[in-house]
Structure formats: C-alpha cells, structure tokens
C-alpha cells in the first residue's frame, strides 16, 4: 500500500503544472526508500523530465511494496484543481491498484474531499542518464532565467547560452533583430538565492529551442534558484530543487546543419 501525505497540496500542483505541457502520460514509480520518481520524455524526444520526490517531500510517507502508477497528467491536473493550495493532500493506492485515491483535507475546517483517478498501463521506454562531467555549471535566480526565456521567445525560436569564466550570456537572433543579456558572477550575502555562481572548466556555446525553455521555466514556481549544467555538444541539465529531491529537465541542443 502507498500512502503519501503532502503538508501543502500546492507542492504537487506546482510539480504537475511544471510538466504537464511537456508530457501527457507518465509512470509514477513508488518505493519506500526513493519516494516517488518519474522519468518522462516528450513526444518529440527533445526534452526529458526526471522528477524525484524523496520521502522528505511528504509529511508522512509509506510504500510497503514497489508500485507503478500510470497517470494521465491532464486528468490528475483536473483533480488537483479541486483542492486548495494550503490543504493537506494524501495519495493512497492499494497494492496492484487500478485507481489512485486523492484526498484533500482543509486544515481549519472539517472538510475532506476525496477523488479517485483511474490508472493506465503506460508503455514508455526509460533512458539511462549517466552522471556527466559538465563543462559549466551556473546557479542563478530562477525568476531571472524565466524572464529571459519568456522574453526572448518573442524574438527568436532559439536561445544561445554562451559561458566564459567571467560571464554567462543569453543571446537571441530573430527577424526583427537581436538581443543579449549578460550576467556576471556575484554573491549576495543578504539574499543568497539572488547570487549568481558560474563554475567553468571549459567555455561553452550552445543553442536551445525557445519553446522548450519556456516549458522548463514553468518550474520556477518550485524553487527560487535554477542550476544549469552545460557540456559542449550534449544535452543541458536544468535543475530545480524540491524541499527534498529535484525536478530536472534534460534538453537536447540545436546544431548547425
């Protein structure tokens, strides 16, 4: 049996809102030690989502036996809208379940809402992602990166990320012209999350689809910082930390044809 209780329904709501525009169907893998993990790839095979909700994400978590919950995220999203952000949210599934029970509890009133979501058999292949040695790692405020991704999408289909030891530059070239934003590393002692950290082994210059970056930055609601790991001629990793665990996006770059 699975029983996972979130202190705030908003956490799961934000997670699902961050991934459901990229993938519609995905398997939630549940286990006592790892909590709930998900790997899902978008239909175009360009963006991979790796989610890890450790047991620490939950106020209470138990999973007696490993289980896989096949979920339609659009349907799950409809149910999650029924609860309030501050509610307790509990996911309950029997062994070999054909449905997932979702329970919202208001913390002040004696209101309990229960929903049952039908599960699906989802046949999806899993990719092996080795721990890569990255050429560059950038940690910056997620709001800043989100603004760049959203603003530059109005100018161009692609966003170039150029990292040197001194700076990270985001650059877009479109029909109306071009633009760039440069960030230099800095440490904000009063607000550490406002700091910008650049670790560079080798300079990198990569280009990504603006549409995918716009999907990725939807997760900015989950964390005030984002870590971007870049390696020449390889997919980039965009990571948002959860209270315990992470939401990662791997995005394949664009190349000169």
């Amino acid at each position: 049996m699975l029983e996972g209780k979130f202190d705030q329904a908003s956490l799961l709501k934000k997670i699902i809102d961050s991934i459901r525009d990229s993938v519609k169907l995905c398997n939630f893998n549940c286990s006592q030690n790892d909590g709930i993990t998900v790997q899902a790839i978008d239909d175009s095979r360009v963006l991979l989502i790796a989610l890890k909700m450790d047991p620490g994400c939950f106020q209470e978590f138990r999973c007696d036996r490993d289980m896989v919950l096949g979920l339609d995220l659009e349907s799950l999203g409809k149910i999650l809208k029924q609860g309030n952000n501050e509610d307790y949210l509990t996911l309950i599934a029997e062994d070999n379940p054909d449905s997932l029970l979702i329970v919202f509890e208001d913390k002040k009133k004696d209101r309990i809402s229960e929903f049952s979501l039908k599960l699906m058999d989802i046949d999806s292949d899993v990719l092996t992602i080795d721990d890569m040695d990255n050429d560059c790692s950038i940690t910056m405020p997620s709001a800043d990166f989100s603004k760049i991704a959203r603003d530059f999408k109005t100018m161009s289909e692609s966003l170039q990320i150029i990292v040197t030891k001194e700076s990270v530059k985001f650059k877009a070239e479109g029909q109306i012209g071009s633009g760039s934003v440069i960030f230099k590393p800095h440490t904000d002692l009063d607000n550490p999350d406002e700091s910008i950290k650049i670790d560079m082994n080798q300079p990198v210059n990569l280009t990504f689809g603006a549409k995918y970056l716009n999907d990725i930055v939807k997760a900015s609601t989950l964390s005030s910082t984002i870590t971007i790991k870049l390696t020449d001629k390889a997919p980039a990793l965009f990571e948002f930390k959860l209270p315990s665990g992470y939401l990662r996006y791997y995005l394949a770059p664009k190349f000169e044809d």
């Binding site: 095979r45 360009v46 899993v126 791997y250 394949a252």
Partner: peptide
C-alpha cells in the same frame, strides 16, 4: 540553419 537534435542520439535505452 539550425537543426534540433534528439535525446536518442545521446542517451541509451535502459
């Protein structure tokens, strides 16, 4: 002209 690459060319199926 830029061409979008696929994750399949970087990651193997598990």
């Amino acid at each position: 002209k830029l061409k979008q690459s696929s994750l399949n060319s970087f990651f193997k199926k598990a």
